[in-house]
Design a protein around this nucleic acid. Structure first.
Lengths: 156, 156
DNA sequence: TCCTTAATGGGAACTATTTTCAATAATACC
DNA sequence: GGTATTATTGAAAATAGTTCCCATTAAGGA
């Protein structure tokens, strides 16, 4: 499928090209979709949201592209315990929007929170340093999630 | 399958009975297996380790039991990104052995660390309090993982 | 010991994800 | 701009982890 959008470079083009990947219409569509929502989309969700405008971007491509984006560090892959992977951009055109997740084990709802993030990030940075020194790991990323029961589920 | 072990109660019997579950030989075997290792076992791993002594505990039962144990709060279910769930006891006969994980995205190796845990746990407790107040969540658990590349994979 | 009901196992079913492969399109080079 | 090279592609088939189904069995209370 030809890359029909002839508008200028997007903020993420560099990051992709630097890793040796090509810019395609499918990839544009996928990244656009991810960047236009705060939902935690599964591969199938992305497919559904793209399919109208790009009927010939297949599910396989979605999976492959998301995987590639995870490799390139542009996307983070989450497991919220409902059997399918969820994807989120690590940053937008304006930079990172740091948040963590609160997951309801009753209904699988996920709340993004940014409260307390500064303290967390500060501690994580220290921990990261300590760990990478001690275990000789290069640490790229971290995951913090809290699990519990949301108000609605508590009411039952 | 009859419960052949007639030895006295195990430390976990109460927790299971309190949730209305029964004690069976299969469940004993599964918990024993989990408590005798620090490995992060998948359902299939547990099956393999039990199958010699209990040839008639099926994989289905392993899945069901692990799920039940997660519900009962005795087991924690992890996703390290290799496509299968991993299970770990949340506590042993001597109480909880608190640790977090360092995951290599190259080879999927997982290192348990306990360093810095005290600071982390202290911060988490505070965050947990703040979050549960603000979002009216009952928080039961948390997950912290660091992702990166281990020494061996860095060498490549 | 008997009775109720939860737990079981084997296989089939399900579902998210990956693989295969021939066709197509994005980039580098001229 | 045209062409060669090579990554990317979609569809269908394959895979793999997990769950469902249902007749049978066993745990625990009376």
């Amino acid at each position: 499928m030809p890359c029909r959008k002839r508008c200028g470079d997007q903020w993420w083009h560099g990051k992709i090209k630097d890793c040796g990947y090509r810019i395609t219409a499918g990839r544009e569509a996928i990244i656009e979709t991810l960047s236009s929502t705060h939902d935690h989309l599964s591969a199938e969700d992305v497919y559904a949201r793209i399919h109208d405008r790009f009927p010939n971007v297949g599910l396989t491509t979605i999976y492959r592209t998301l995987d590639m984006l995870v490799n390139a560090g542009l996307v983070f892959k989450f497991d919220f315990g409902d059997g399918k992977a969820r994807y989120e951009l690590t940053e937008g055109p304006k930079g990172a929007h740091h948040h963590h997740h609160l997951v309801c084990t009753g209904c699988n709802r996920v709340i993004d929170y940014t409260d307390f993030i500064d303290d967390e990030v500060e501690l994580l940075r220290r921990t990261e340093k300590g760990l990478s020194d001690k275990y000789r790991f290069r640490i790229d990323n971290h995951l913090i999630q809290f699990y519990g029961t949301c108000t609605e589920c508590l009411a039952k």
